[in-house]
Amino acid sequence: MNRLLTLFQQKKEKVLNIYFTAGFPRLNDTLALAEAIQEAGADLIEIGIPFSDPVADGETIQKANTRALQNGMHVALLFEQLQKLRDSVKIPVILMGDVNPMLQYGTEDFCKKCQEVGVDGLILPNLPMDEYLAEFKPIFDRYGLLNIFLITPQTSEERIRRIDENSAGFIYMVSSSSTTGSTKGISKDMEGYFSRVDQMSLNNPRLIGFGIKDKETFQQASAFANGAIIGSAFIRAIEESENPSLAAKDFVQAVLE
């Protein structure tokens, strides 16, 4: 069974997903960071594929993308770095990014490589659902990959239910219509949206992202969903550290303490 499905069967609440950009802060930090995140107690790792024009990302992750690309990160190198991933990392790992790097690499080859290195799913925010269902789902299924869809406060109930019907793994609940990296925390409007979706009794687990930055906001988000995703705050915690792996452990442990 896919590791994501196993995770959500075994853990129903306070699931912590940590996002970081591949090749950041240094080119060869990717595997060491994944190991540190697991060791600190996170449940799920989301690795961003750097792209020159990332979708919906705020300034922090945009800068991380730029730095990773300047460091020399690219898709083929990422797969090389992940070759020994499953020797040490046992928790689920998903890749997140623009659909274009996958298309440029070749969808079939990309998905095959994901299976080889032990990637469990993909988040491709700019891949339309109809296109995914018609063209990509058979390939994803062939290689055991789950596609994770995003919803926002503006997503209609009809679309949310359609996403739920065509999903496995989890649904990524974007907390607001802004970009990633908000430091304002969780507002009453967000809580209303979380509650509305919660009351829909969806089949899939939900993780809340955007604006989740510390123990307090993680706990708040987890009250309305199965857990949350932290990205920009984690990036800020490791970006200038002399020991990114140690900084990663400290950050995750502080969220979970």
Rank of each mutant, 00 (worst) to 15 (best):
P54W: 11
S52A: 15
L4M: 15
G48C: 10
L7R: 05
E59V: 15
F8V: 00
E46Y: 07
R26V: 10
T6L: 12
E35I: 15
A40L: 05
G41L: 06
Q38K: 03
A22H: 13
L27A: 09
E13Q: 15
F24T: 04
D53Q: 11
L31Y: 06
D29R: 04
E46V: 08
Y19I: 01
D29C: 12
K14Y: 12
R26P: 00
T30W: 10
G23P: 08
L7Q: 09
L33A: 02
D57Y: 02
A56N: 11
I18N: 04
D57Q: 04
I47Y: 10
V55Y: 02
P54R: 13
I45T: 11
D29I: 09
E35Y: 04
L16H: 00
T66Q: 15
K12W: 00
S52T: 15
F24I: 05
I45N: 08
A56D: 09
T21L: 06
L4C: 14
L33G: 08
L4G: 04
I47P: 14
A56E: 09
N17W: 05
A32G: 13
L27K: 13
D29T: 06
A34E: 06
R26Q: 15
F24W: 02
F24N: 09
Q9W: 01
A40E: 11
I18G: 09
I45K: 01
A64T: 09
F20P: 01
N28C: 12
Q38H: 04
E59N: 10
N65K: 03
I18H: 05
E13M: 10
K12N: 02
K11F: 05
I49R: 09
T30F: 12
E13R: 13
I47L: 13
E35F: 02
D57G: 02
G48W: 09
A42W: 01
M1L: 14
A32W: 01
I49D: 05
K63Y: 11
T21H: 05
I18V: 15
E39P: 03
D53R: 13
D43S: 07
I47H: 13
A64H: 06
L33Y: 01
A42G: 01
P25C: 08
A40K: 02
E46Q: 14
P50Q: 12
D57E: 15
L16T: 00
T6Y: 10
Q10W: 00
L5K: 15
T60V: 15
P50N: 12
Q10M: 10
L4A: 06
I45L: 03
A34M: 09
D43C: 06
I49T: 07
I61E: 03
P50Y: 07
E46K: 05
F24S: 11
I49G: 02
I49A: 06
T21F: 07
A32T: 13
G23D: 08
T66W: 03
F8N: 00
L44K: 03
